[in-house]
Structure formats: C-alpha cells, structure tokens
Simulated assay, not measured.
Amino acid sequence: MPIAERLIQDIEIKLGKSIINITPLSGGSINRVYSLQTAMERFVLKVNNRFNFPGMFNLEAQGLEIICSTQTIAVPEVLIQSETDTESYLLMEWITPGNTTQKASEALGEQLAQMHRHTSHSFGFYTDNYMGSLRQSNQLHERWSDFFIDERLKPMVRIAQTKQLLTNNDLRLFELLYQKLPGLFTEEPPALVHGDLWSGNYMIDAHEKPYLIDPADSYSNREFDIAMTTLFGGFDKTFYDAYHASYPLQTGWQRRLKLWNLYPLLVHVNLFGGTYTNQLRECLASFV
C-alpha cells in the first residue's frame, strides 16, 4: 500500500530533508513498514491507522526510551513520532543488519541481564501499552503473582472466553492456577522486561551489536522475558550462558517457563484463533 503524500510531506518538513526513495519492508500484521532514503541517510518508517491502534506508536516510543535510559542495551533512536489526519507513524534510525555471531549472542545475554537489574517499587508500569495489537494493562501491584493474574492472565482469558476459544474446563483450570500460583515460585524484585522478547524483536547490526525493538515493557518477574525467548526459538546456548553468568536465575526456573508462557500463548490464541489452544492447555496442565 503506498504511503499518503501528505504523510511524506509531513516527514520531510520535520526532517528538513527530501525523501528520494521509499521501499516497503516486511512488517507483520499490524503495521506497514518502509525504508526511507534521503540523499545521505536511511530510516525505518512504521505506519498504521491512528483510529485502529490509538497511541500505539507513542507508547512504543516511550518503551524504547525507558530501555535506552538504562544504558544497558541499544534500541533504535526514535526521530519522529507523529500523526496525520488518518495515520500514525514512527520514524526511527536505520539499523544495518548483521549476523548473530557468538559474540553478538553473548552481548545480548549479558546486556539483557543488566537491563533486568533495573527495578521499581512495584510490578507494572506507569502506563498501559500493547502486546501485539491487544491492549496490555499495567496497573501496579506489590506482588508478581497478583500482577501476573490480574493484569496478564485474567484479561486474556476474558477475551478468549468471549470469543468462545476456551472450554468451561479450561476456565476451571485457570481458576485453580490462580489459587496455586503464589506457591509456584519465589518472589524477587520487579525487573524492567522487554515483554515480547521473541526472535523477531531483537536485531544484530553489522558490528555485532544487539538491539531490542518493539517492546511491551513493564516491571515484571525477569523469568517472563527468558520464558518468552524459548517459545519460538531463535536464542542459542551462548545467550543463556551469558545471561546466567551475569545474573543467575533462581533454582527451578526451567520448570516455570511454561507457567509464564501462558500469557503469550493466550495472546496468540486471541489474535490467531484456536491453533495455539493445544499448546496453551499443555502448559496449563503442567501446573494444575
């Protein structure tokens, strides 16, 4: 889909530079993504309908800024976040892709661990945001178990129930899980997490430097990020070894991966239908 001329004009005015080339990029199911070139520079542009996903790019820009402020791991620089009458857009620096070498994987693990050391007085975030195209509630809680139940599981279970994607037995098992959850792990301080850390949401540049993109930030249990890395693959042993060497996880973390992955699986059930339901039920059955 071509970019509206008024949007390009808006970017050119804000940049003070002329756009000489526009190339569509693969960008998933939510946004249209393009490479923009001026005479001297290249940028990434994300565009969506401002009414379908209100505030999405503003929240994404804020999430990137929070990660950047930790000075632990790189994120793309946000240059412009703005709207036209119908569209919202986010213009960011271009990251030249490189290879995921051993050095890059090690840096990714170490730097994620250092980001996770940044904490807050509560679990949650100062604003709600998005997980994919679904709104994500981040109201503050003193305990991770309460946050995970009330702000992660219950909202997604309600959506799935409304869509008739879960059975009465599924709902009964979730209620049992809510009762058992506080005894399934040991609380630790909130950690700043990326929140949607699958292989498509990190990049390695041409100099083997890792970047995080498309965050769904919150202050959560750091095992949540680690669990998400295992859901669809794309992270090697070097990454995990480097993370553990920098910030060891609590005993039994491997057993809890399926527990924390209930949330992204519920998100996928709600976004893509019942194809993920069996995987969701397998994870749920491991704990109830």
Rank of each mutant, 00 (worst) to 15 (best):
134 L>I: 12
11 I>P: 05
121 H>R: 14
112 L>E: 08
111 Q>D: 12
38 T>P: 05
171 L>P: 08
111 Q>T: 14
150 D>A: 15
263 Y>D: 08
104 A>T: 04
31 N>V: 07
94 W>T: 05
49 N>C: 15
229 T>Q: 04
129 N>G: 08
274 G>P: 03
170 D>G: 00
236 D>T: 09
217 D>N: 15
102 Q>M: 11
39 A>V: 13
77 E>M: 07
171 L>Y: 02
107 A>Q: 12
49 N>T: 13
19 I>Q: 03
192 L>C: 03
282 E>G: 08
203 M>A: 03
92 M>H: 05
151 E>C: 15
106 E>S: 15
263 Y>T: 08
282 E>F: 07
20 I>M: 06
9 Q>R: 13
180 K>F: 02
163 K>I: 03
265 L>M: 14
164 Q>K: 11
61 A>W: 00
66 I>N: 11
255 R>M: 10
117 R>M: 08
214 D>P: 06
198 W>V: 13
62 Q>N: 13
62 Q>H: 12
158 R>P: 10
7 L>V: 15
179 Q>V: 11
151 E>S: 15
21 N>L: 11
120 S>R: 07
209 K>Q: 14
19 I>Y: 00
22 I>C: 10
82 S>A: 10
256 R>K: 05
133 S>C: 04
131 M>H: 09
152 R>D: 10
273 G>L: 05
283 C>P: 08
72 T>N: 10
21 N>E: 13
280 L>Q: 03
63 G>N: 05
138 N>T: 00
168 N>E: 15
9 Q>F: 09
